[in-house]
Design a protein around this nucleic acid. Structure first.
Lengths: 253, 253
DNA sequence: CGTTAAATTGAAGATCGTCAACCAAGGTGG
DNA sequence: CCACCTTGGTTGACGATCTTCAATTTAACG
């Protein structure tokens, strides 16, 4: 709406741009297909931080595409403990899986102010009937989400606390690079240490200590919602980071 | 091949039976669609325990459907630590996601002797071009895998060691019920405590102690490849188990 | 019957969590 | 405009859960 935020402005004109861009990293997407996706978005909405977008169990008839911002999918234990299973950024189709699941078994909420495009499920059904290749690309995007989940499971299950956080930073850096949201080796990450704890399966107190260690080791700084990587190679080594799980190559799918 | 194992024999005649059955739990699948799936399986093979079925990075041109047995998908850290991200049982399409990913970022291996049906990717492509509903059902099955992964992430990230193992037992009990592989409150689980440790993100030593605790509390016994549940309600309570994440309702998809 | 992998148990130690206090920042209402 | 309140960040002390190391037993298998 405002015209002084250039990146957002482009996004407002083409809310589906980031998604198309990311699909094109993985395979060719024709302009006709891209247009079909563009027409699938019914409306765009700005949502403030801390809002629940979908509560577990709720029936769905539309899916949400992130235009900009940060969204988490999370599950809670009955004792109140929370685990974030995914963090989504611009160009991610947060609950595309809701199209077939019909309800989600987890919650979806904003970690930061976020702009969202809504895609009615009937339009997805239509794509599935008429656009086999485009449908495969959408399926693919849920499969990549799944691969990211698996890598996170490796983190939470087997990596040390420092390595877990280092890995998260490497991953976000790589994923945000794809949508031009990094500036050199820095990127905006307007989320709390509590959020990071909930992703990493740690407490916020321990996250705080590990962030200090990463800073002391000269690897990364996370302060005032800004991540600054000082030694990418060192960070990747500590994290045992290998970007191949992000499937950044173009292949006929 | 042999004719003295009735369950397996049925499976040999209809290797895709379990899959169709499980899809039908989630939505109607016509007999025509079921036949198409049956024809998609090119050949069936028996694989012994401890075999690597797919190594990370390997190019794929077929996917594997489990007819009977137990298969794990796992990732390794460079220091040798292993995390199993999924355990698959009869009727699971272990690497259906390989159809679109073209290579896997993780390994797939047998935890027990397993019978596998191979489905060439070209037949899946054909289904995707000609059978939109059937394709959505296949997509759905990868989405349910994903939901299981998320629940496991909650376990590994936030549940205590005992609760993690209790939850795994509840899950396997429920999933094996679907394919008639339980006998009352017991089921065969021919895997090691090391495997359980790799699923739960624990060491086998600690798994051993937690299994003893579950036994001492009168909840479950896991011995000689057999799980016997003594108090399902108590086990589910300890595990904070809620089967809704398995999507066991029929819906038009 | 010997060999190997897995299960079991104990003792000691490390990592991470809990509790608690304090600080910093940002927003709200008087 | 500033006290006040809330949320998040930071640090220390202590403790619990889980790991590591190591030894022994059991089971499976040729």
């Amino acid at each position: 709406m405002s015209s002084n935020a250039p990146t957002l402005d482009v996004a407002a004109e083409d809310p589906v741009g980031c998604l198309v861009h990311k699909l094109r990293v993985r395979d060719e997407v024709t302009d006709a297909e891209a247009d079909i996706l563009r027409n699938a978005a019914a409306r765009v909405e700005d949502v403030p931080l801390g809002r629940t977008l979908v509560a577990a169990g709720q029936k769905l008839d539309q899916s949400m595409l992130i235009v900009s911002g940060f969204v988490a999918r999370y599950k809670d234990l009955s004792n109140g403990q929370r685990q974030i299973t995914d963090i989504h950024v611009a160009g991610d189709f947060t609950d595309l899986h809701g199209f077939l699941l019909k309800r989600l078994e987890h919650n979806v909420g904003t970690l930061a102010p976020t702009r969202i495009a809504f895609v009615p499920h009937e339009r997805l059904t239509r794509i599935s009937e008429e656009q086999p290749h485009l449908l495969r690309m959408l399926w693919l995007s849920t499969l990549i989400d799944s691969a990211i989940q698996r890598e996170r499971m490796l983190s939470v299950g087997r990596r040390s606390a420092v390595a877990r956080i280092a890995h998260l930073m490497c991953e976000l850096y790589t994923r945000l690079s794809l949508v031009n949201e990094v500036d050199g080796l820095s990127f905006a990450l307007p989320i709390t240490q509590i959020d990071i704890a909930d992703v990493a399966g740690l407490t916020s107190v321990h996250v705080n200590r590990m962030l200090r260690e990463l800073r002391d080791r000269g690897l990364v700084t996370f302060r005032n919602a800004l991540v600054e990587i000082h030694d990418l190679a060192g960070l990747e080594k500590l994290a045992d980071f290998d970007r191949s799980y992000l499937f950044l190559e173009s292949e006929p799918r």
